[in-house]
């Protein structure tokens, strides 16, 4: 996921961030969004939810020419709300419920009445994900080696 930059986001950037945060959110977290709604949105499935493969690519030496590393399972869904908005959900793994809910949230995010709610949800979820990652970084940092140089020789 890309970190936020200081400039105001374009609609595509907002959308990208929404879809990425939803892809990283837990199913429980996504369900919470709907539990907090007064009225459940109605929608139609346009594609999926379906599970398939994404071939993950790497670079030789980390920076060189591209090669195929191996595949990962991925699941995707596309919905259309009865009000017409389209939403997409994607994530690694095989969780069909999660991508369906993600797609609905993405679609709601393009509808003016829901925009603030979705953007708040995305921000909170992003913060949760970030704090989980920060914790991991801090745990790794505690295993950093501090070398002590032993002074040898006579004086």
């Amino acid at each position: 996921m890309q970190t936020q930059n200081a400039l105001p986001e374009t609609p595509d950037q907002t959308r990208k961030r929404t879809i990425e945060v939803l892809a990283h959110a837990s199913l429980g977290r996504l369900k919470q969004f709907f539990a907090d709604l007064d009225e459940q949105p109605e929608f139609q499935m346009m594609r999926g939810p379906e599970t398939g493969l994404v071939m993950i690519r790497g670079r030789m030496g980390g920076t060189g020419s591209v090669f195929n590393l191996g595949e990962a399972t991925a699941t995707r869904a596309t919905v259309r709300l009865t009000t017409g908005e389209i939403g997409h959900g994607y994530r690694l793994g095989g969780d069909r419920d999660a991508v369906r809910l993600s797609a609905v949230i993405d679609a709601l995010g393009t509808r003016d009445a829901f925009k603030p709610k979705v953007s708040r949800f995305v921000e909170e979820t992003e913060a949760t994900i970030k704090s989980r990652e920060d914790k991991q970084r801090a745990e790794t940092a505690a295993t950093r080696v501090n070398f002590f140089t032993m002074v040898r020789g006579d004086d």
Binding site: I56, R57, G58, T63, T73, Q136
Partner: peptide
């Protein structure tokens, strides 16, 4: 399983490092 597509090359320089 059907193959949906290909990822962009992963960037190991931007890794969330565990070791």
């Amino acid at each position: 399983l059907p193959r949906f597509g290909y990822s962009n090359p992963i960037n190991t320089g931007e890794m969330l490092v565990e070791r």
